[in-house]
Amino acid sequence: MEKEESLILADSLGAFPRNLYHTLVKLNPDINLICSPISIQTCAGMLRMGADDGSETAKQLDEGLNFTSSDVNLLADGFYNTLNYYQQSSVLQMANKIYIMQKYQTRMEFSDVLTQKFLSNIENIDFSNSKKAANTINAWVESQTNSLIKDVVQQNVLNADTRLVLVNAIRFKGEWTIKFDESTTQNEDFFLDDKNRTIVDMMHSTNNYFYADLTNFEAKALRMAYKDSELYMLIILPNQKNGLNSLEQKLRLTPLDSITSLLKETKVSLKVPKFKAEFETELTPVFKELGISIIFSSQAEFGKMLEQNEPLSVSNILHKAFIEVNEEGTEAAAATAMVMMVRSAPAPESMPEIFHANHPFYYTIYDENHGSLFVGNLLNPAVTTCGQCCEMH
């Protein structure tokens, strides 16, 4: 049975990151993107546990999140297997939490599945004191992400009508199996497109890496491993300086393992820029693009959540992610918060292959068993960017 549960989530953890990433790129076309599909999906998975059985709400969530089963017990067990797997990890930590409006109670079945299967703590809080409530939630997220993710929830999204906030935080810090020698890092051009360039700190290494020439994608792929884990960074570099958009279109329809299965150990001359990226966004338009719209409306059916019989809907889904890549390795973190309101509220040894990542590329940090944990692109290493949410603050 455990195999079946794992497969249900594994299939989903393959398709959902592709659809999510494609939608985020479409809505945020000109900035460095970094997000954590597994953080977003875990938060939405907790939401799914509170949707009425057989409802249109449950159906839209199942389809939009790419679940291959509508059996909540199987889904919950699948999430448990994934979350429990990372409990043993020394390089990746995930944590879930639910905040409930004071004097409100979750239904026993809902609280049981969240605590036992999603390993989530439940805490009562007074959302009407929006500043204090936001500070409490943000302090918890900060504590779970080594202070990399701050202020994921702004006080203006909380008020007396808020009933629940579902939060997932994920933090990753991995050392490369093959570290870069800092003394070889030097200033080099990074080509933003055919005409424009910027100067970046470019890391160098010539070593054996898992590499593939993806002729059908007009791109190359290279995988770097992290110590003490089954986690990897995969970079897919288009052959053309302005080829990222075309590559991304093809990747949307391509399962990750169909690319990783082509990788072969090869001597490679590697160049990768040092970079940091931060991205922040409100995910309502993304969920609507993915076909999940009913959760934001008066038709939402979340009768399994609270003892109090109040009609609930989702008012905000907030996501913030950060990544830093340097000679030692990678540090990344993300957090997702879902705010629910009552409805009145809103190869052979030879010459090395060349893999010089000196123009925009796609990357993912993934686990062979659990798919993409972080997905992003690098358009300009000289800029640390964030998304549309920043404009709102």
Score class of each variant (00 low, 15 high):
Asn96Lys: 01
Val200Leu: 01
Met94Phe: 01
Gly371Phe: 02
Val167Pro: 05
Glu5Leu: 07
Tyr232Arg: 07
Arg197Pro: 10
Lys320Glu: 13
Ile294Asn: 11
Ala277Glu: 12
Leu13Ile: 00
Leu27Arg: 13
Ala345Val: 15
Leu263Lys: 02
Leu24Tyr: 09
His204Leu: 07
Ser297Phe: 01
Asn129Gly: 03
Met224Val: 11
Lys320Leu: 11
Asn121Met: 05
Ser6Tyr: 09
Leu237Glu: 07
Thr254Met: 02
Asp126Thr: 04
Ala300Met: 05
Phe361Asp: 03
Thr266Gln: 05
Cys43Leu: 11
Asn239Met: 03
Val157Ile: 15
Pro381Ile: 12
Ser344Ile: 14
Gly329Pro: 07
Thr206Tyr: 00
Ala321Tyr: 03
Tyr80Asp: 13
Ala139Leu: 01
Leu263His: 06
Leu253Ala: 08
Ala134Glu: 05
Ala95Cys: 12
Asn146Ala: 13
Pro346Trp: 06
Leu148Glu: 15
Lys276Pro: 01
Thr384His: 03
His204Ala: 05
Ile323Asn: 04
Ser90Thr: 14
Glu324Trp: 07
Asp189Ala: 14
Leu7Glu: 14
Leu166Gln: 01
Met338Gln: 13
Asn156Leu: 04
Asp52Asn: 10
Tyr363Val: 02
Asn156Ser: 02
Asp181Tyr: 13
Glu182Pro: 13
Glu368Thr: 04
Asp257Met: 05
Phe296Glu: 05
Leu237Ile: 06
Thr177Leu: 15
Thr260His: 08
Tyr85Val: 04
Ser6Arg: 14
Gln60Lys: 09
Phe322Tyr: 15
Cys386Lys: 08
Glu353Leu: 00
Ile365Ala: 03
Lys179Trp: 04
Ser372Cys: 00
Lys117Met: 11
Lys103Phe: 12
Asn187Arg: 15
Leu262Tyr: 13
Phe190Pro: 02
Glu278Gly: 00
Gly376Lys: 02
Ala51Val: 09
Val268Ile: 07
Ile294Ser: 07
Ser147Phe: 08
Glu349Ile: 13
Asn316Pro: 08
Asp189Arg: 14
Ser111Cys: 07
Ala300Asn: 10
Glu5Cys: 09
Val25Gln: 10
Glu282Gly: 12
Glu331Phe: 08
Arg197Leu: 14
Asn129Ser: 10
Phe118Thr: 12
Asn19Arg: 11
Ala221Arg: 05
Thr266Ser: 10
Val325Cys: 10
Gln88Glu: 06
Phe279Leu: 09
Ile235Gln: 03
Asp367Lys: 00
Pro311Arg: 09
Gln154Asp: 15
Ser269Ala: 14
Leu222Arg: 01
His370Trp: 09
Gln93His: 15
Glu248Trp: 06
Tyr232Gln: 00
Leu61His: 09
Asp11Val: 11
Asn207Cys: 11
Lys103Arg: 04
Leu379Ala: 05
Lys97Met: 07
Leu231Thr: 01
Lys220Gly: 03
His356Ala: 00
Glu248Cys: 08
Val91Arg: 03
Ser269Pro: 08
Asp194Asn: 15
Tyr21Ser: 05
Asp151Glu: 15
Phe210Cys: 11
Ala44Trp: 04
Gly64Ile: 05
Lys271Glu: 13
Asp257Ala: 07
Cys386Pro: 01
Leu119Thr: 04
Thr260Pro: 03
Asp53Tyr: 12
Glu280Gly: 10
Ile365Gln: 00
Ala334Arg: 00
Ala58Asn: 08
His204Arg: 10
Ser258Met: 13
Leu74Gln: 12
His393Val: 08
Phe296Asn: 03
Asp189Gly: 08
